[in-house]
């Protein structure tokens, strides 16, 4: 039974390969498909980023961020790294964006809050300086330092990635975990209230 199904599939694939060979002169080449996909992902990234910046509502801004992440995942696919693309979806959309949403819902968020007003000139200057600073540091590095990366990472199977992270790039891997640890400690410190203080606050609220 299963052999029969396999035979049928095999012959179907042969017929389709024949049709493809016959159509080949009229179809756009693979490069064109890749270019179209690249253009689509660039549009996703840019439009998502613009939505994130220009939206006057935090939830819509987060949605823009999600669209950008989808585009970045597509870029990883084009770089022949499906594992990284899926990890991008799993971590950035499934965890990071969901947590951002959660934070938005837990904080008091009204439609006419601070973020709904147009930014002042000083904010625009700060934003501009931030972008320039990041570009000045990262831009030259990206342009000059990424030529050999494709050669260094041939296939992104789980074992290759694991070996790379725990041997060649161990230092940067550990440094990133330290950054995450510091961020987490900082978050706990910001949210920390000594027990007595919290009780006093609650009593005050109950009596009021």
């Amino acid at each position: 039974m299963n052999d029969l199904i396999g035979q049928i599939f095999h012959s179907l694939a042969l017929v389709l390969a024949d049709i493809e060979a016959w159509l080949a002169p009229y179809l756009p080449g693979l490069n064109w498909v890749a270019l179209l996909a690249f253009a689509f992902y660039v549009i996703l990234i840019l439009s998502g980023g613009l939505t994130a910046i220009l939206a006057r509502n935090l939830v819509r801004a987060t949605l823009g961020l999600i669209i950008t992440f989808l585009g970045v995942a597509g870029m990883y696919l084009l770089l022949a790294s499906p594992f990284l693309a899926l990890m991008q979806l799993l971590i950035y959309i499934g965890a990071v964006c969901v947590l951002i949403f959660f934070a938005i819902m837990l904080t008091k968020n009204t439609a006419d809050g601070e973020e709904a007003q147009a930014p002042g000139p000083l904010n625009l200057i700060y934003a501009f300086l931030t972008v320039v600073a990041v570009l000045a540091v990262a831009g030259p590095t990206i342009v000059t330092g990424t030529k050999d990366i494709v050669v260094r990472l041939p296939v992104d199977t789980g074992s290759n990635l694991g070996e790379g992270l725990l041997s060649m790039d161990l230092l940067s891997f550990e440094l990133i975990s330290i950054i995450l640890l510091v961020a987490m400690a900082g978050a706990v410190y910001l949210a920390w209230r000594p027990q007595g203080q919290l009780d006093a606050k609650n009593e005050k609220r109950e009596s009021a």
């Binding site: 594992f83 899926l86 990890m87 979806l89 799993l90 499934g94 969901v98």
Partner: peptide, 15 residues
């Protein structure tokens, strides 16, 4: 990476 694919797109459900 079949199971990673499933887990990655299942994350969109909660969204």
């Amino acid at each position: 990476d079949g199971i990673v694919l499933i887990l990655a797109f299942a994350g969109l459900g909660v969204l």
